[in-house]
Nucleic acid binder design. Structure first.
Lengths: 343, 343
DNA sequence: TGTTAGCACTCAGTCTTCCGGAGTGCTAAT
DNA sequence: ATTAGCACTCCGGAAGACTGAGTGCTAACA
């Protein structure tokens, strides 16, 4: 009677959703009765299904097929019906095992975890590396590559490294580079990257700097190095969606791949998740992304200390095994958090 | 008469290949005559085509369709018939423009170039970042993240950066880290990474080090950091193949994507290309990769000074516009070489 | 009033059949 | 050696029939 829906309607809706998650085929009134042993006739179930369609929870692809759950149904399922299990023992071990890849290239860790998410969930794994902005500055290094070309390495508290090559207009000596590094490292210690950025802007206006070309050059360089254009988005297991019958059509498939290529769109969405710690679920059109109808996204955030660093998750069909995938994403985020923990 | 093939046969083979590259449909004897204005009757062309099929240059999908070029035909085309044009002016400008992305994240440059290759060629772009082994050691940095966790940053002469996090068994101070870095940087200066590796092994056995736990620890760390497991393979534009009619079938498509997921296989192939400087072409089964039938790979190497650093290229259908893509790959490799040039 | 059985109806998917068209190989004439 | 003519093959699309799963509606029933 709660949620404005009769208890029996809920049972039937749940049965339909779960069957559809398994079979990906429209569910008819009789098949549902057989499989769930409800003590109701097919006719009664039909009546209920008609009501559910009226309310927007079900849709029929064509008049004489069965019914298919709508996004609204999945949302209701996830919010009200779903009993989130904890992670399977086997999956948990798999996750732990593959998270413990110390000694690997740092980006490699994110890629590995993305791959792991995809292979454990059988959908697509996605990991957004920490946006540098959210990070705490630790150290900056300058390396002289040529007389006019330097490598700037930026290291955050959590160990993320960002490096880029910058061309200079005039020559510079390695002694000058050391001076610059010392100056910057002293000034910026302990600030978050976004604080660093505004600090640099402020500093550039100060008198002391205006008359010291070396210092102003240092500030200019660090500003360039901080420009956070790196995508840092790892999507793995795209081939998994070939196995899903709902994307058997080449056209649908193409849409999905195009959507995955527009990483900036996805990044924007994931950035929003940063603000809402914990697990987030976007069903179908809820993500407001192009070409993402029929796809769901489950995310969680990983943190370091007080800072929310980044987001990871799984992208699959709306017909996803939510009960299984949600704990996987949740657990993985916690493992990554632990992995990045700075004591 | 040369190459064991009559001049007319060559003309006809060339016409068939070029038509097929455009249309992706089996070519019949009459359509070829219309489009190329040959002063021959369809019947004569049929005779020649039968000969070419006999010789293994053509195949018929079914008895009453036209003919399709075989891998052997493409190989002959590329080796003997093709006049490699130089790059289009427009394409050249596009390549130049997108190569000049100084100030970007270093990995970002490779990704960008891979994307550029895919969008200019309309196939898939592929860039293998320099294998560290081929590189010249420049500098190593240690950063203390926690009391037992350090970040090792390895910088090569060409500005490539490799960084990984390593867990220690016991605590270490930052002074000790500085000593370690100085020791290693002094010892390894100017060696290639593979030389560095053997040097480290040798050093670990020397008496001086055996009794200095700090030094042996330093060697152990650098050894871990040098383990070149990073894939560093950028494949972009996979969605482009959706537009190719020969992969319209979902099954074929899936095979291609599975092939692209097995990056280690591809990397092995590209590693071989490192040994053969300049442009390399693998047609269909020539690559000996699984699931790569129907696909061709065009690669070229980019270098820095005397060292061949890495490989880039384009993957497309065997029915590729070789005359257009080869110069694109070639020119891009040269641009990247120039981009990485250390004066 | 809620539930059930029965029935006529609908429509996607499959299977079959039936051409038309493009292409071939062969033969005979040039 | 080349070409015109001809019979043959086979793919692919269109049209039609059939099947089966599923529905909505109505009337009977508890």
């Amino acid at each position: 009677m709660q949620d404005g829906m009769k208890i029996r309607s809920r049972q039937i809706l749940e049965a339909i959703i779960e069957d559809y998650i398994c079979t990906a085929e429209p569910i008819g009134s009789s098949s549902i009765r057989n499989r769930h042993g409800l003590s109701l006739s097919a006719a009664t179930i039909r009546n209920v299904m008609a009501d559910l369609e009226e309310m927007g929870y079900l849709a029929s692809p064509h008049p004489s097929a069965g019914r298919v759950p709508t996004d609204k149904a999945y949302r209701f399922y996830v919010d009200s019906l779903l009993a989130v299990r904890s992670v399977d023992r086997g999956e948990r071990d798999e996750i732990r095992r593959r998270c413990c890849v110390a000694g690997r290239d740092v980006d490699g860790v994110f890629r590995e975890i993305s791959q792991m998410l995809s292979s454990v969930s059988h959908y697509m794994g996605i990991v957004a590396a920490p946006r540098f902005n959210a990070n705490v500055f630790r150290q900056m290094e300058f390396v002289l590559l040529g007389s006019r070309r330097i490598l700037v390495i930026l290291i955050s508290q959590s160990g993320t490294v960002q490096n880029r090559i910058i061309e200079l207009h005039h020559e510079i000596s390695s002694e000058e580079l050391v001076r610059m590094a010392n100056y910057l490292n002293g000034m910026l210690q302990g600030l978050t990257i976004s604080q660093v950025k505004s600090r640099i802007l402020k500093e550039m206006e100060s008198d002391k700097v205006q008359y010291d070309t070396l210092l102003s050059e240092a500030l200019r360089l660090s500003q360039q190095a901080l420009d956070d254009s790196g995508t840092g988005l790892f999507i793995e297991g795209q081939a998994n969606i070939f196995d899903l019958p709902e994307f058997a059509d080449a056209q649908r498939m193409k849409e999905v791949f195009r959507a995955m290529e527009q990483k900036s769109q996805l990044l924007d969405l994931l950035d929003n998740c940063l603000k809402a710690p914990g697990v987030n679920i976007f069903i179908g059109s809820e993500s407001h992304l192009n070409n993402m109808s029929g796809m769901s996204l489950i995310t969680s955030t990983y943190v370091s200390g007080k800072n929310t660093l980044g987001v990871l998750g799984v992208i699959g069909p709306t017909r996803m095994g939510y009960g299984k995938v949600i704990p996987i994403v949740d657990y993985t985020a916690k493992m990554l958090t632990r992995l990045l923990h700075v004591e």
